[in-house]
């Protein structure tokens, strides 16, 4: 094996950014849709883990990872529907319901996922873009999963769709003002219900990626807060899908910092590097929030920015 020395660090970070960012991309795109409709779903962490379990379980039983992804999407949509339906009622707090749904989703995933800790599931395919290089690290870094590419395409599509389609417009009207939406003859609750369901389905794809590609197994510690960080990431990305994609890449890179440094022999402060994505999220939140004005580009009806 050729030794590429310290060049391995940026390469490993790039590879990590591509590999680690995919769940962030899907969860943050899902949350962006939900938040654009004026509601926040903090429960996506639970949806993500439940999606990971569902995808893994179905893939083990049917031997098809894609059926696993579809099943995870269905399960995620159901979680979103439950959240959206409950939040429709007066006096119900969408943030608190999100926390409750997160605990419920985690509990149910651990409960139903017990039999799937042992067996191994078929993995999602990836495309080797690194064939031109002789360096194994480069080949490994450019071995890109199909879901990453779908996520990137989805980000561009959503960016376009928010501006140029009827559905995108309806979503934004509902998110900016329930009253304006009602005046247009739209039912804000229905729109938010559907937006939360779509958000849940996308978040569950992120979970399917975790269990079916990287790290590629199901266990109770499969997620370390990706679902929650993605919510913060949407705020940072100003509810812009392209911004979500770029922010997800940044977070993936931060998450890969620890393992990358370890691979070249830096072991000091190993655990602190694990905290890098959380510290980065917090720093970004601090830098981009303001106590006096609401955030630029924030949907007007969103409770988290008030």
């Amino acid at each position: 094996m050729e030794d590429i020395g310290l060049w391995g660090v940026p390469l490993a970070i790039l590879a990590g950014a591509i590999r680690v960012s995919t769940p962030f991309i899907f969860v943050s795109l899902g949350e962006a849709i939900t938040e654009r409709s004026g509601r926040i779903n903090l429960g996506l962490e639970g949806t993500l883990v439940f999606g990971a379990m569902t995808a893994y379980g179905v893939a083990v039983m049917t031997l098809s990872p894609w059926l696993g992804v579809l099943a995870a999407m269905a399960a995620g949509a159901v979680f979103g529907l439950v959240h959206g339906w409950i939040c429709k009622f007066p006096k119900v707090n969408d943030i608190a319901i999100g926390i409750a749904m997160m605990q419920f989703g985690l509990g149910l995933a651990f409960f139903l996922g017990k039999p799937f800790i042992q067996p191994s599931a078929p993995k999602l395919p990836s495309i080797p873009f690194g064939g031109w290089s002789d360096v194994p690290q480069v080949q490994a870094a450019l071995n890109i999963n199909v879901l990453f590419l779908i996520g990137a395409a989805l980000a561009v599509f959503l960016w376009w769709a928010f501006r140029n389609t009827r559905i995108g417009l309806i979503l934004r009207v509902v998110g900016d003002s329930s009253d304006a939406a009602r005046a247009m003859g739209l039912n804000p609750d229905t729109v938010r219900l559907l937006a939360t369901a779509v958000g849940g389905a996308l978040a569950a794809i992120g979970g399917a990626y975790l269990s079916l590609f990287y790290p590629g197994s199901w266990n109770e510690g499969i997620s370390s807060g990706q679902g929650l960080m993605a919510v913060a990431l949407v705020i940072f990305a100003r509810w812009n899908p392209i911004g979500c994609f770029l922010a997800a890449m940044l977070f993936g890179g931060a998450g890969a910092l620890g393992p990358a440094l370890q691979s070249v022999g830096v072991t000091q402060g190993y655990y602190l590097f694990y905290a890098a994505p959380y510290v980065l999220t917090l720093a970004i939140l601090i830098a981009t929030s303001s106590p006096t004005r609401s955030l630029a580009g924030a949907p007007g009806a969103l409770s988290i920015t008030k």
């Binding site: 807060g225 929650l228 919510v231 913060a232 602190l272 694990y274 917090l282 939140l285 929030s289």
Partner: peptide, 19 residues
């Protein structure tokens, strides 16, 4: 800073565990 306390406190919890 107007940072959402729900998200900030949970991020701090993950940082605490790493620490």
């Amino acid at each position: 800073r107007g940072v959402n306390e729900t998200i900030a406190s949970l991020l701090l919890a993950y940082i605490a565990i790493a620490l």
